[in-house]
Design a binder for these strands. Sequence first.
DNA 1: TAGTGGTCTAGACCACCGA
DNA 2: CGGTGGTCTAGACCACTAA
Lengths: 252, 252
Amino acid sequence: MSVPTPPVDAGRRFVVDRGSPVPLYFQVAQHLENSINSGMIPVGTLIQNEVDLAASMGLSRPTMRRAMQHLVDKGLVVRRRGIGTRVVQPKLRRPLELSSLYDDLASAGRKPTTEVLSFETVEAHDEVTERLDVEEGSPVLELVRLRSAAGEPIAKMTNYLPEHLATFSEKDLAERGLYDLIRHQGIVLHSATQTLGARNATAAESRMLDEPRGAALITAQRVTYDDHGSAVEFGTHIYASSRYTFEVQLFT
Amino acid sequence: MSVPTPPVDAGRRFVVDRGSPVPLYFQVAQHLENSINSGMIPVGTLIQNEVDLAASMGLSRPTMRRAMQHLVDKGLVVRRRGIGTRVVQPKLRRPLELSSLYDDLASAGRKPTTEVLSFETVEAHDEVTERLDVEEGSPVLELVRLRSAAGEPIAKMTNYLPEHLATFSEKDLAERGLYDLIRHQGIVLHSATQTLGARNATAAESRMLDEPRGAALITAQRVTYDDHGSAVEFGTHIYASSRYTFEVQLFT
DNA sequence: TAGTGGTCTAGACCACCGA
DNA sequence: CGGTGGTCTAGACCACTAA
């Protein structure tokens, strides 16, 4: 249970860099986030009130509020009128981010490998047409990959991209995540909608994913959008449920 | 593809209620959201610039900006410096909300029914202890429910709550969603972490959910937190994958 | 009553975009 | 170049909480 703790001075010796192109509120938010993650501001403590904190950093209150709101959105702190700002249990952290399976595995220290099973331009039909919002029959890049970690197969992934985004090679794809390759074209990813379900594996899928016959697979269909609202990628994937689960964070 | 469209006057004849306890920025955001959803502001159009819009409603620019940011967070519009604010394709909308299966089904017009299979106080052990952050052996309410829609079984849900939250009856539970009952105790739900996976149904589960033997089920484990950061509920659920999928929205 | 965060205002300067 | 959104300031008043 949360024990009342005296407020901590979270702004000690921190000075913003006014010459930096990084917004002040973001510099502050990042500083506080580091302080929390490193344990310098322990979980459960009250953070110094925003007015004093702003003053101690030589910032206006609105700027400090914006930094605080950033931490609230990330689930690092909760604020209550009349009470203060408290660092919350790490359990409800886990930011919701648009990351790729490749990055997830890499950051978890499990060595992801990718086998590119197919890399070709096809004509868009049916669901691909609809999801990517392209003309029927227009060329799209079809990718099929088998993603493994620590030598064990995790997922078979099928992706479709509008052809104008196909500026990378099969070799690039084997070495890096798809999102990485898309982002390096100057495209700013904005959001994605994903539908998760389950079904039984076919015989071929069982073999490919090294699962028993008829094993339960997780299915995922994802459409990713850039910051213009255009679809940049549609994928339909299957995951070996014995070796992978999805973590999702929901907010009110 | 998005066709350039002249900016629309989104604030015509709208006046905020300054006597209302509802914040002005929220009134404005809601008004704009309604205008977009009703089609009064068509998808793809540019919205009048924020300075003029603020003036036309008699508000300051920061207040208008806050309303706009609300719409950005909801994925309704995208803003670009030097360009303007554009209503995006409805595909990438679908807000991410902390809703219950009951509410989801009800709002989709499918009549949800609940059969309470178990409603009793038990001692907390193992995973329940850990997830709810309560003492080993302390009393918790254990609920087992079978949720159906349109006469077909959808999910078997097992939930655990700290006993002090058990202020409702078995009858209440059969008629309303669990979140509803929790919220009506004055508890403000804040966030939840959910882990989604899949596994094959046991014989008993197949019968209960009216699925074939060994059918693939979606599994979900969810911990819900209030705005103090305390866990209020832990649930472990199975869903008939032939009749249910999860939609998830991800942001950068 | 004193202290907290929540809301709102009226300005200012800047970076970026399209014509 | 003019127009857009992005950032920042220095105040103000309010609602809520605790003691």
